[in-house]
Amino acid sequence: MSLDSNKPTLLICDDEEGIRESFKLVLGDLYNLRLVRNGVEALDLLKTFTPDAMLLDIKMPKIHGMEILKQIKKLKPRLPVIIVTGYQSVEMAQEALKNGASDYIPKPFESQQILKAVSDVLK
């Protein structure tokens, strides 16, 4: 995917093809997207590259989303991370925010919700 230097770049980490395609559909016109399928790929990429914001799923194979969040925050404390998950609960939202997440969006989301959350964290 070619990167347009005028657009901010988002890193999207979700193991579900359907979700990645949905993000492409909602955000693809406004942002450069880098899509990865799990935490290992995400952390690998972040070693050499800094996106403007990140969208992160919680339930994924290999590394638990919350664990990825903690490691990202160690690696890139200033990177805004938005949690997008189907496993929402008050406790999990609190934990995510405590671990440095910028926002917490439950699935299934509205396109507008995602757009607003991303533009908010990029301000």
């Binding site: 579900e16 359907g18 979700i19 395609e21 949905s22 559909l25 909602v26 339930k59 189907g86 496993y87 439950p106 699935k107 299934p108 989301f109 509205e110 396109s111």
Partner: peptide
């Protein structure tokens, strides 16, 4: 109910557009 949310999200986003 949670498992259903992933496919549901995709379906919802695509039908929205």
């Amino acid at each position: 109910a949670h498992e259903v949310k992933n496919p549901l999200t995709a379906i919802k986003t695509f039908t929205e557009h």
